[in-house]
Design a protein around this nucleic acid. Structure first.
Lengths: 273, 273
DNA sequence: GTTCTTGTTCCAATATTTGAAACTTGGTTT
DNA sequence: AAACCAAGTTTCAAATATTGGAACAAGAAC
């Protein structure tokens, strides 16, 4: 499927285990596996050794291993977006009192990397790490709209176009038109396209070169919130997105330039230390 | 290092990138890498293709990829501990008004999988996924104490025994004695062994067969909290741990038994659909 | 224009992965 | 108690992927 040599195949197995929402037995995996028994067996061994999978001897089941949680923690923290955006999300959420999402694109899907919920306490991993469709959510469309031609085309082809509600834009043509409007307007709406009763307004987070770093959205319920109310928040939302982008770039640069800057002054530069 | 074929080597590279807290360049990685240039290069390509790494073309840097966050979300949710423990943590934290940690052992270290902080809002990945030492934290010692002989020996050998404070038990002998006391007592203390001014009380979460599923702790500051106060919470803490263990086992079983029960009725069973 | 430094590609030697089949294990039926 | 069966584990020669030295771009620095 992925093709990338042994590592790719091992990742496929990992995904397969992830796809079952619960601990799963060897035989069950074998049924759906493209690999023969011995091969699958060895992959599971390897992945378990690496603690990417955990094996429960009592029930003879495999599930995703804790090492992933550890790596994800590192990934989140060293991401150039999430840690930087955090205080901005706090502030934005406090000012506007509505649910705020920070998302990135992953494999044509929306990956939520952080969230603030004004009323109820924050939920942990159940939100960070969650994925959603790109073609029918506010953040998804906002990010898709500002993608370079080639990448956009590729991602549009990856969408499922499932009709979640009567408002879902369930074909590439309508979506493409919508994306054009989003670029012109500068922000995206979700008009109950994913879930009935849920509306949202979103903007992309763009680097100075126009790269899509992520997306930021404000979500409301049709019972309590109207589009006019969301529209009034656009300036604040856009300013927050820009502030995040600016900081992300400023933070990102040092990792690379810090050495370089230091070296520029003293003409001859050594590697290491 | 890990040895496990190609997958193991790829994971080593991933860990190496994780070890730098920030985006890192090819040359920097190469310096510390046991692999020759071409090999490291191909690993980075593969990992980037798999979206386990993300490559930033602007700065020519690699960092951990978002796919990890996604996988960790799945790992957390399908873990037999964290999702089940969640409501219990909520309730416990509300009752006692102190910081509560849920942890598991990973590679001889304490991995925090969830947290409740009574006063400030929950922090996301910055807490879930965080790791700490096992030999000088409450949860760490509570879990170590109830490990089977062989595993315990192995993990004790893996500890760093760094003397964080003057109270740290910084050698295997003292630690072993402490673990014996913990087994006898049923719960563990952290007497400012990791951080000055921070004390804590912890219990293991044990399956009916005595397996260590995780650990649960209550943390306080010496300025506001005393050990007598923590001691008074032991019954509540222990009861919560037991409740979590019971539910974890009850939830775990069906995944395996559901099919078996169904199959037992109809004597001759085919594989596949 | 030349010289570094950094990153990328080639390809034959080499080591790893592959998978059919044989084997072990633990439980169930006759 | 023996035979049976399903589930999991190991074996080994053939097929395949990985390896890494060295040559090759592409920029930046001199």
């Amino acid at each position: 499927m992925s093709g990338d040599g042994t590592v790719g195949k091992a990742m496929d197995v990992l995904d397969q285990v992830a796809a079952f929402g619960r601990p799963v037995r060897f035989a069950t995996l074998l049924e759906d596996s493209p690999f023969p028994k011995a091969t699958l067996y060895r992959f599971l061994q390897t992945l378990t050794n690496q603690r990417l999978l955990a094996y429960d001897p009592d029930h003879q089941t495999y599930s995703l291993g804790v090492r992933l949680v550890r790596l994800a923690h590192a990934a989140w923290n060293q991401s150039s977006l999430a840690p930087i955006a955090r205080p901005h999300l706090d502030a934005l959420s406090r000012r506007i009192g509505l649910t705020v999402h920070l998302a990135q694109l992953d494999h044509g899907q929306v990956l939520y990397v952080d969230k603030r919920n004004a009323t109820q306490p924050v939920e942990m991993f159940s939100d960070a790490g969650k994925i959603g469709p790109a073609y029918c959510t506010g953040v998804g469309k906002a990010m898709l709209a500002f993608l370079p031609e080639a990448e956009q085309r590729q991602m549009l082809a990856q969408q499922s176009y499932h009709r979640f509600t009567e408002h879902t834009l369930a074909d590439p043509a309508s979506l493409r038109a919508e994306l054009a409007r989003i670029v012109a307007r500068g922000h995206a709406y979700d008009r109950e396209e994913h879930e009935p009763g849920i509306i949202c307004i979103a903007v992309p987070i763009l680097s100075s070169r126009g790269h899509v770093l992520g997306g930021l959205s404000i979500t409301g319920s049709t019972r309590t919130t109207g589009f006019d109310q969301l529209d009034a928040l656009v300036p604040d939302l856009g300013a927050t997105a820009q502030a995040i982008a600016a900081e992300a770039e400023a933070w990102r640069a040092p990792a690379y330039l810090a050495q370089k800057d230091g070296a520029l002054g003293q003409s001859n530069r050594k590697t290491g230390t």
